[in-house]
Design a protein around this nucleic acid. Structure first.
Length: 534
DNA sequence: CTGGGGAGGGGGCCC
DNA sequence: CGGGCCCCCTCCCCA
């Protein structure tokens, strides 16, 4: 009996030792993996910080250069512009309001976007509920321009088909967010939030909008890890902080295998307990939202104020801007082309475009806004969505192109030539333009902004002319006819190409085999296929 | 059937 | 706003 007891005791002790060993092994494995993970995170953070610093330095340099070039009228213009922007918001026909709760915004920041960027959903609700009421006049006024009848709920119920956002919406959006987000939809009444016919889908739409504005990722936690695929983050915001913050919810024991809960998000150490507290997850995400907001503000500040006069110089343009903006009705095309939004929710689309145009007209202000940038990206991604990492690409463009463009600029190649002393520079590539509208249009190349939408399909275009040209696809208008044959073409350049069929002109010769082609594209294809090694 | 070339058509973008 | 160019995709023809 005694032997039996001793045997059992020994077995128990052995079991304990084995268990401890197993636990230790597991801990070691987890720790190793975690160390790798942390290392990667740290590296990414360092890279991000470095990129941010680089961006700020570049912007600082650029702004200084510009301020030196255009300092005399700068402050005045800024003030004038600011006043104008306020007028648009408060008394004008804009339905876009500055978030009241966005207390990080400053008066000297001309951005007046309520896209919810950098705010949590709750913030958006409060903001839009309050400010939309205050700006209700503007909403009604604008609606009366092109539409009749109540728009918000009406448009929601009409369920406009084919809105570019529909295809992108995530049907898995959680229900608990519905109520609040619905309120956002109904209050804000923007087109990108009023595209669906059902209540639940309304929330999805708003969720989509929020996702694309980089403000709220909670509805789709999967995006947190792969957010770049569908939701370009704010410039300067990362998903890494999400991970860190989420780690707070993990029962950690620290490097010393202690039992203390790791509350310092920067030091998520050995996590023996791999289970994540779902209830805490939103905390991490919420925090991420805040971080995102912080990054947004940081980025924004780097472009605008940050308490630096030189930074303000970045916003400052020249008198031409103000004159242009004030004299040219920025909504002309929109007012005239309200029908462009017929395929969508008209009133809201109109508002949306209206707003877009209004701020885009205010060059060097809204066009410099990361909010603006990513809202434009939003619209693009919903319609054609060509780039899953567009945000990153864009951000990289910001970082890289400035060097390149500055080199051009310093070499005299940054502008299109000419001797004008007032130029408007693209914030992405530093290319100079003689008038703000041109720069504005050009910047859509970088931002992906496509404010012109087709009523027949859902193509969107950066330029009104492109839309006009595209609409011939639907109308079948072919005004250009070949004098040699009966072929007709919708475009002159196509006719020109076609004429080579008759003339036999083959100006493009392969340098390798001498074969000649009528168009460069054939030569290129030929060379790729037959001389690809060259 | 396959691959190369020709042609049409559309979007992007600059001038 | 139009002209123009580039690029791409697609279809067709033919060797």
């Amino acid at each position: 009996m005694a032997n039996c007891m001793v045997f059992h005791t020994q077995i128990a002790s052995i079991m304990e030792v084995l268990a401890n060993a197993a636990v230790a092994d597991i801990c070691k494995l987890v720790d190793d993996d975690y160390a790798v993970f942390r290392l990667e995170i740290t590296q990414s953070q360092k890279e991000n910080r470095a990129l941010r610093r680089k961006l700020q330095l570049l912007e600082l340099k650029v702004s200084r250069e510009r301020v030196l070039a255009s300092r005399p009228s700068s402050v005045k213009i800024l003030d004038r512009y600011r006043g104008m922007a306020r007028g648009q918001l408060n008394g004008g026909n804009r339905s876009f309001v500055k978030p009241a709760g966005h207390n990080t915004w400053r008066d000297d920041q001309p951005i007046t976007v309520d896209e919810g960027s950098g705010t949590s959903t709750q913030h958006v609700i409060v903001i839009e509920s309050a400010d939309a009421e205050a700006a209700g006049l503007g909403v009604k006024q604008h609606r009366s321009e092109g539409e009749e009848g109540p728009r918000q709920s009406g448009d929601i119920q009409t369920g406009v088909v084919g809105a570019p956002y529909e295809a992108m919406e995530d049907p898995t959006t959680s229900a608990p967010q519905s109520r609040t987000r619905r309120s956002v939809t109904e209050v804000s009444g923007r087109p990108d939030s009023v595209l669906k016919s059902e209540t639940d889908t309304k929330t999805l739409t708003v969720t989509h909008r929020l996702l694309h504005t980089g403000s709220d990722h909670r509805s789709d936690p999967e995006r947190l890890g792969l957010g770049r695929l569908a939701c370009p983050p704010a410039p300067g915001s990362e998903y890494l902080p999400v991970f860190h913050q989420s780690q707070r919810t993990v029962n950690s024991r620290g490097d010393g295998y202690g039992d203390a809960l790791d509350t310092g998000g920067d030091e998520p150490s050995c996590s023996y307990t791999t289970e994540m507290d779902p209830g805490n997850m939103p905390l991490g995400l919420e925090t991420q939202t805040d971080l995102s907001k912080g990054d947004w503000n940081r980025y924004s500040s780097s472009l605008y104020a940050e308490g630096s006069l030189d930074k303000k110089g970045e916003v400052i343009v020249v008198d031409e801007v103000t004159v242009k903006v004030e004299s040219d009705a920025p909504l002309t095309w929109n007012a005239d082309e309200t029908h462009l939004g017929e395929g969508h929710s008209q009133g809201s689309t109109s508002d949306f475009l209206d707003y877009r145009e209004s701020i885009e007209t205010n060059v060097n202000v809204a066009t410099h806004s990361p909010l603006h940038v990513f809202r434009d990206l939003d619209s693009v991604s919903t319609s054609m969505a060509p780039s899953d990492s567009h945000g990153r690409v864009l951000f990289d463009q910001v970082l890289n192109s400035n060097d390149r463009a500055r080199a051009q600029s310093q070499g005299g190649g940054a502008t299109s030539g000419g001797s004008k002393d007032k130029w408007f520079f693209c914030m992405f590539c530093n290319k100079g333009f003689s008038c703000p509208q041109k720069m504005e249009i050009h910047q859509r190349v970088h931002t992906g902004g496509k404010p012109f939408s087709c009523t027949q399909c859902h193509m969107r275009f950066a330029q009104a002319r492109d839309l006009k040209r595209h609409q011939r696809v639907h109308t079948g208008v072919k005004p250009y006819s070949c004098p040699q044959c009966e072929k007709r073409f919708s475009r002159q350049d196509h006719l020109k190409m076609h004429l080579k069929v008759h003339t036999g002109e083959r100006p493009f010769a392969c340098t390798h085999c001498g074969k000649r082609f009528s168009e460069r594209r054939y030569l290129r294809i030929h060379q790729q296929k037959n001389h690809s090694t060259l």
